[in-house]
Design a protein around this nucleic acid. Structure first.
Lengths: 229, 229
DNA sequence: GGATGTGAACGACTTCACAGCG
DNA sequence: CGCTGTGAAGTCGTTCACATCC
């Protein structure tokens, strides 16, 4: 009932590009690794080196990078910096994304303090919680607001993405409120399947599911280790 | 260079079964939903209802559930309880998994307090940190130990799985230590690609990658919302 | 009628293999 | 010679469609 598929992206040359879902996930990993090797002074990388580092084949890497245009030089490799810039553009993280965080428990605080977010241009600009005792507290110069204030606060701060880090009983209600307030994408950590209108994007991360995957792998002694996600 | 693939599982009838990676991820979601509907008193479910709830097709659900054996009754559906039991057996979570948690920062604490873990039989039995000021602190009746004590503590507690919630600079070192101490599977939250021997299972969760996926989806206004993973 | 289980068709993703370029 | 870019082949995963059974 839900159709999987390819993404249509405006390519750098202005044309349309069909991008597979699986590649999108890998671009984040390429980016992370490329920023690392650039810091070590490597101005060039080859598909073989990248594949080695991420545990995938060199052919796969070349297929992915070909989406960015013809950035590679035969016999030489790719310019690290050029790849980084192109991937950031493709993923849409060549700019700042203002984020609203709902649920300032341990998980929320962990996300708030997470370096990786800021480094990639994600900036938490608003905090919300449903617990009345937390309303009004200030963390990192941000005041925790209640859900009723959401439309006003989100309009004022310009938050476009929402992170849901509340217990699962409250998750759908929080999602609905965020959507009413005009948020365009949700990152959900609550272990429930959220119902959202088609125009709101949703990514869910369920920590229990990940642990269960691991238990399954250990339990069955499966042949190969899986990749990140 | 790493081959992806199917898992060989000992089926309930004793035979070998080939199980796709993708299905494994969905079994956790089925389980979560089934426990919910069982709590509401639904003794039977159909593939259509399950698919509707998780946003996938009924055919997909039937294909997945067929891995469990022929539990369905044509015209009736599946017994909720039977499915729950069979999925728990398949995933290997029909027993308790002792877990060692490394890194007692915000994320570590969030995981420690996470209800879902305990409910599914994952029990944190050992805590470690690299920060000397935290060593010796007691949380939830567990004393935070340092990495040197790892072999002894893990042997004493019987921990089989390790959760890595340390900054990425320390992650590989922690992984190596856990592996030396005899751990069989790792759940990694640090944004690096860990190197592990083939017999140790690895699942990685990179929160930045998830946010970047979301940014990409919003950025491109892709047609359909993705599912959990 | 209503729902399962499953071969066959379809579509997506990965790997192969090699032409072509620096 | 080394490495990229890409058609072709192969593998994996999902959906269709329908025989089958309660």
């Amino acid at each position: 009932m839900a159709k999987e598929g390819l993404f249509n992206v405006r390519a750098s040359d202005g044309g349309e590009l069909r991008l597979s879902r699986a590649s999108v996930g890998r671009f984040s990993l390429y980016l992370r690794h490329l920023e690392g090797v650039l810091g070590e002074g490597a101005a060039k990388v080859s598909s073989g080196q990248l594949g080695e580092a991420l545990g995938i084949t060199d052919a796969q890497v070349r297929k992915d990078l070909a989406y960015l245009g013809s950035l590679g030089q035969p016999g030489i490799g790719y310019s690290t910096q050029e790849l980084i810039d192109a991937i950031r553009r493709l993923l849409g993280i060549d700019r700042c994304w203002p984020v609203a965080l709902v649920g300032v428990g341990n998980l929320g605080r962990a996300l708030l303090g997470y370096r990786g977010f800021a480094q990639r241009g994600f900036r938490v600009v608003a905090l919300f919680d449903t617990d009345p005792t937390k309303i009004g507290q200030v963390i990192d110069e941000l005041t925790i607001c209640n859900v009723e204030q959401m439309p006003a606060v989100i309009a004022a701060t310009g938050a476009e993405l929402g992170v849901i880090a509340v217990p699962c009983a409250a998750a759908q209600m929080v999602a609905d409120a965020l959507i009413r307030a005009g948020i365009r994408g949700l990152l959900n950590f609550a272990p429930v399947v959220l119902r959202t209108p088609a125009e709101v994007r949703l990514v869910s991360v369920d920590l229990t599911v990940q642990l269960e995957q691991l238990a399954f792998l250990v339990h069955t002694q499966a042949p190969e280790s899986p990749d990140t996600r």
